[in-house]
Amino acid sequence: MIKKPLLRYAGVALLGTCLLGSCTTTKKYNALLAQKVNLEREKADCETSLAKATTERTDLSKQVAELTEYRQQLASDTTQLGNVLRKTQSLYADLSSSYDKLMKNHDKLMANSALESSKLSKDLSRREEELKKLNEALAKNRSQVDQLSTDLKSREERLNELERILSEKDKAVNALKTKVSNALLGFNSKDLTVNVQNGKVYVSLSEQLLFKSGSTKVDAKGQDALRKLANALKDQNDVNVVVEGHTDDVPVSKGTVGMQDNWDLSVLRATEITRILTSAGLAGTKITPSGRAENVPLDPAKTAEARQKNRRTEIILTPKLDELFKILEVN
């Protein structure tokens, strides 16, 4: 590139030569004039190239600034899940390193050839494609997070509903215990107890209250207790009743009519109690008689006192949990 002062000096020199040497020929003058025109044309070309280079430098500076701003904005959006975050940080570290190199080489790149500029353009395009893929990955993970949040909200609603139903069930069980206990007031606590276990009401009646030894016929006092219990349960439409007969570990006497072992004795006693409850007005569809023989003792000892505890009938009252099961069945 030829500077303006140089052109001025060249013109002055030419003019001075012509003035001082009046013998200069027209041909030589014309040659110098042509040389001056060429120099001015070259000057104009240089100024055009300079303006173009300046414009290109400004455009590249603007692109670098925009990419830097875009990178900073992207960095603020990468607070996502753990694995995605680590991957994103790694990608951004690489990207930051690349940008640092770009900034350091900025001045040098301004003077590089068209080939180097093309290479830079391809590199920037590749980075933009990486950023595009990263954005797509972030959008996908954001969608997954939104779906997880929706699922979590749904599960929380189910859990709240489940807790509500369980709370109502506990209230119902306690109310049922109170009602049964009030109905059976007056009976000896050693012969009849009402307790709540595992969300169920257990009415335990001793053998002394219900049966004579080895018999399956309920005594009058026991029938009175069962009728009172049936009256208390008549309006409890959402309660299932299981009658469990229990014996001690002493086998039934050989030759006892209709019984081979304690299984028969426990089942027959449970069945007899079920008949009394249904004859007192309790719906048969709600009652299930069963016998457990000696297999579920209250006291495993072999003493007379322990065996007396084990000879009992347990009437188990279980609230229906249809609404609860429906919630649990929902996927």
Rank of each mutant, 00 (worst) to 15 (best):
K153P: 08
K153E: 15
K153L: 14
K153C: 12
S154N: 05
S154W: 02
R155M: 13
R155N: 13
R155K: 14
R155D: 13
R155Q: 13
E156L: 15
E156D: 14
E157K: 05
E157G: 03
E157S: 04
E157V: 04
E157D: 06
R158V: 09
R158L: 11
R158P: 05
R158D: 11
L159F: 15
L159D: 15
L159T: 15
L159E: 15
N160M: 12
N160K: 14
N160W: 11
E161P: 03
L162K: 08
L162C: 10
E163A: 12
R164M: 15
R164C: 13
R164Q: 15
I165D: 06
I165P: 04
I165E: 05
I165M: 08
I165Q: 06
I165W: 04
L166Y: 07
L166M: 10
L166R: 08
L166F: 11
S167N: 13
S167I: 08
S167W: 11
S167E: 13
E168D: 10
E168W: 05
E168A: 09
K169S: 11
K169R: 10
K169I: 11
K169V: 11
K169P: 07
D170S: 10
D170C: 07
D170A: 10
K171F: 15
K171E: 15
K171V: 13
K171W: 13
K171T: 14
A172P: 03
A172E: 06
A172M: 06
V173E: 03
V173F: 09
V173S: 03
V173H: 04
V173Q: 06
V173A: 08
V173N: 08
N174H: 10
A175N: 14
A175G: 12
L176V: 05
L176N: 02
K177E: 00
T178A: 07
T178C: 00
T178D: 03
T178N: 07
T178E: 06
K179V: 04
V180K: 00
V180P: 00
V180R: 00
N182G: 05
N182A: 10
N182L: 05
N182M: 06
N182W: 05
A183H: 00
A183C: 01
A183Y: 01
L184H: 01
L184E: 01
L184Q: 01
L185H: 07
L185N: 03
L185I: 09
L185M: 09
L185W: 03
L185P: 04
G186P: 03
G186F: 01
G186K: 01
F187K: 13
F187Q: 10
F187N: 13
F187W: 14
N188D: 14
N188L: 12
N188A: 12
N188V: 12
S189W: 08
K190S: 15
L192E: 08
L192T: 07
T193H: 04
V194P: 02
V194M: 01
N195H: 02
N195K: 02
N195T: 01
N195A: 05
V196R: 06
V196N: 07
V196S: 09
Q197K: 12
Q197L: 11
N198E: 09
N198V: 06
N198Q: 11
N198M: 09
N198A: 09
G199N: 05
G199P: 02
K200D: 04
K200G: 04
K200S: 03
K200L: 07
K200R: 09
V201C: 02
V201P: 04
V201I: 04
Y202S: 03
Y202A: 02
V203N: 00
V203Q: 00
V203F: 00
V203K: 00
V203M: 02
S204W: 00
S204A: 05
S204R: 05
